[in-house]
């Protein structure tokens, strides 16, 4: 559990609040969006597999775990990239609210899981499931409520720049 809290702190440190769009800031937004999207996809996949196991259908091997999380991880990465590229002004709010929801979900879920399941891993299962719900709810709320208002006085904004470095 300490590692999860540490990871939360690390992720909070990466939160990037909305800033004017420049090429440099967008580079970081795209990268950060992709990385956090991949992490979100992985967490949701683990939560899905945990829910399946709690319903009586666990994974048979650890190899299945790698396969089961690969697609959601890639999907999350793509989603994060898309937000960082095309909706950068939503990124900060999405991440901030997402992490807040995730941390809250872990706390509530961990507590509930210990009561619902009496085996030693019940608390962990609750934390993962709660974290997933928190991520989804927080991320969605953050996306909807964030974003900069259009500036009617602006004649022409900075064009969108996507840099691909080799």
């Amino acid at each position: 559990m300490r590692r999860v809290l540490l990871l939360t702190l690390v992720l909070l440190c990466t939160v990037e609040l909305p800033r004017p769009v420049t090429a440099v800031s967008q580079d970081w937004s795209v990268l950060g969006g992709g990385a956090l999207g991949a992490a979100t996809g992985s967490w949701l996949a683990v939560a899905f597999l945990t829910a399946r196991a709690r319903a009586g259908d666990p994974l048979d091997t650890r190899e299945e775990a790698i396969i089961g999380t690969a697609v959601p991880m890639i999907a999350g990465f793509a989603t994060g990239l898309a937000i960082g590229t095309f909706a950068e002004d939503h990124l900060g709010g999405t991440v901030l609210w997402g992490i807040a929801g995730w941390a809250t979900g872990i706390g509530i879920g961990g507590s509930l899981g210990g009561h619902i399941w009496d085996d030693p891993s019940g608390r962990w299962a609750g934390a993962v499931l709660g974290g997933a719900v928190g991520l989804l709810v927080g991320g969605t709320v953050g996306y909807i409520t964030s974003g900069t208002e259009p500036n009617p006085t602006a004649g022409s904004g900075m064009p969108l720049v996507v840099r691909i470095r080799f």
Partner: peptide, 22 residues
């Protein structure tokens, strides 16, 4: 495995691990 196997073990989601319900 970027924490994936570690978490799945803790949540008891892999039958072959001692943490699983079975």
């Amino acid at each position: 495995t970027l924490g994936v196997h570690w978490l799945l073990n803790r949540t008891g989601s892999i039958r072959q691990d001692l943490s699983s319900s079975d």
